[in-house]
Nucleic acid binder design. Structure first.
Lengths: 209, 209
DNA sequence: AGCAAAAGTATACAGTCGTCTACATGGGGT
DNA sequence: ACCCCATGTAGACGACTGTATACTTTTGCT
């Protein structure tokens, strides 16, 4: 993997550019790529054996980008005590600055290529695990067992990723998306907190309102 | 719209068949379609002006299918009091029986074609609204205001749709997906119930566990 | 400086694609 | 029995695709 240079990098970046303006990674053509990159079609073969391998490399490239983002996120989270609100804002801001990579991820997660799907899933699972462990270590939600934290993290990562698409494409809805995401996270954890309590207690609150 | 017959229907069904075996609606070719349907390529033009119109018609077709499903769902829900568990099971069972349509929906919701995306979104929003109104009418979650019910319904519909893909493709995970979906829904509503309460009450529970 | 490997280019081939025009069929309404 | 219109077929067009082979340029190492 390491670092890409020259024509190889040009091709990958061309792919990201094409995908953001409404195409899918799996549907990109070799010549289309080369044209966008300003290279001869055959240059493609100097760097990739075929289009499948190319797709995987692109995925690797964006995974690398995302990892640095997560690292930043972690660094930032340590300096803030009321993590939720600012973290959500930061995450969306990050997705906005990496619109191409985000679009690829969302498109291919349910896309037609099984290979790319698996690769993306394990990438997301890794992020979810990281998030969960962070929450557990810092005891952000005491009273919720570890398995549940993992489950909720898994859901949250995916939820944010999907909403990120709307966030990128619909600037007028950004505030609403951010707020709804906070709601989502808060409800999940508060709901989990309540889950362990006896049902008659819940009934009592319900009748009060 | 009405009802499709003959070659038109054959083409639409061919599309659904091709999509389930790992293709995307937007990436289907005219000749590929005709080949799969056992028709001459030019027959396509007798029924559709171009591939975009075809995509919309396919969407209309699956929307029709889905609507009958929702109607069934509603009928079934009225006869059951503890809606959640059985409803979730029923919904996934339905998606499993309409795997092709489900796959199309998930793929194109974040796919490259803006037209199809909008069409699918409004379809999902309609379902979410229906679900929310049903919940409100039947007072299934007293103590949660209408706007929140709508918000949660919106999230839930999408969540279920995405999980439905895994449900279809990974038979060994079906029980887990069903359970996690129930968790998801319960947490959302319970979390919403708690949201209106004073924060110090929440802190008290947390310290108790 | 010299040379070998890497990167990029040129040309060509067979296949597929979307679309056009022209022709064949077939059933329904008068 | 007639015609008509919807449906389906045939063949051809130019444009584009992935790939192979052969050639030129650039780069890095000794």
């Amino acid at each position: 993997m390491s670092v890409m240079t020259g024509g190889k990098l040009k091709l990958v970046q061309a792919a990201l550019r094409l995908i953001t303006e409404s195409r899918s990674l799996t549907s990109l053509g070799l010549r289309e790529l080369a044209r966008e990159a300003g290279l001869n079609p055959n240059t493609f073969y100097r760097h990739f054996r075929n289009l499948d391998e190319f797709g995987l490399q692109v995925l690797g490239y964006i995974a690398e980008e995302m990892k640095t983002g997560v690292r930043e996120l972690r660094r930032m989270a340590e300096s803030s005590d009321q993590a939720s609100r600012e973290t959500v804002a930061f995450v969306y801001h990050y997705f906005l600055n990496n619109a191409a990579a985000t679009t690829v991820a969302v498109r291919e997660l349910h896309g037609p290529s099984p290979v790319l799907r698996r690769a993306l899933e394990s990438q997301l699972d890794a992020s979810a695990r990281e998030m969960a462990e962070d929450i557990i270590e810092r005891r952000l939600v005491p009273g919720v067992d570890d398995a549940t934290v993992h489950e909720i993290s898994h859901m949250t990562i995916r939820y944010i990723l999907f909403r990120a698409m709307d966030y990128i494409e619909k600037p007028e809805q950004r505030d609403r998306i951010q707020i709804e995401t906070e709601h989502f996270i808060n409800r999940q954890f508060r709901g989990a907190l309540v889950e362990s309590l006896p049902p008659e207690t819940i009934a009592r609150w319900a009748s009060k309102n």
